[in-house]
Simulated assay, not measured.
Amino acid sequence: MIVCVCHRVSDREIARHARAGMSFDDIQFELGVATQCGQCETCARDVVAQCNALHPVAALEAQPRSHTVQLSARIQDSAAWNPPSGLAAA
């Protein structure tokens, strides 16, 4: 899903950078997420925090490349969350 509409940054792109060991500040600088209107900052930080908790940097090589990010209930319950058709909330 698109997290940052202003810069068209997806949760997958944020997660990929976070799993590569980048901090939120690094990702913000690299992708521009949460630098314009700021509405996406909480969601973007949640994605980074979840990736950092699930994938310590030292264990990156052992993780499969196809891993997907599970959205927190807070994001899924948000009025801003519009899952694509056919995608059930986990």
Rank of each mutant, 00 (worst) to 15 (best):
R74E: 00
R16N: 00
D46L: 04
W81F: 04
S10D: 02
A20P: 05
H67N: 13
A79M: 14
C4L: 04
T42P: 06
C43Q: 07
Q76H: 11
A88P: 03
P84K: 03
R12F: 05
I2W: 05
L71Y: 01
G21E: 08
V3L: 10
A15K: 03
S72E: 11
R74S: 01
L31G: 07
A15L: 08
E30S: 15
F29I: 13
T35Y: 10
A80Y: 00
E61N: 15
R16E: 07
H67I: 13
L31W: 03
A80V: 08
D25V: 11
V69S: 01
L60P: 10
Q36V: 14
A89N: 01
P64C: 06
P84L: 09
D25Q: 14
P64Q: 08
R65M: 07
R45E: 11
E13N: 05
R16M: 12
D11I: 04
V57N: 06
F24N: 08
F24D: 12
A73Q: 12
S78R: 04
A18H: 11
L60T: 15
D25Y: 10
Q28D: 07
T35M: 15
A15S: 14
E41K: 03
S85T: 01
G86A: 06
L54Y: 08
C4E: 07
A59T: 15
T42R: 02
E41N: 03
A89D: 01
A58L: 00
C6V: 02
G86V: 01
T68S: 12
G21H: 12
A80E: 07
V69G: 06
T42F: 02
N82M: 05
S78M: 08
Q76I: 08
C51W: 03
C40G: 01
V69C: 05
L60C: 14
P84F: 02
A79S: 11
A80L: 10
R19D: 02
A44D: 08
C37S: 13
R19Q: 07
A73G: 05
A73C: 04
D26P: 03
D77F: 05
A59E: 14
P84W: 02
H17P: 00
P83E: 04
A73I: 11
G86R: 01
I14G: 09
A88S: 15
C51F: 06
F29C: 12
D77K: 03
T68C: 11
A44C: 06
Q28R: 12
S72L: 12
V3R: 02
D26H: 09
A20N: 14
A62F: 14
P84T: 07
Q28N: 12
A58S: 09
A80W: 04
T35I: 13
D77T: 07
N52V: 09
N52K: 06
Q50G: 13
I2N: 04
D46S: 14
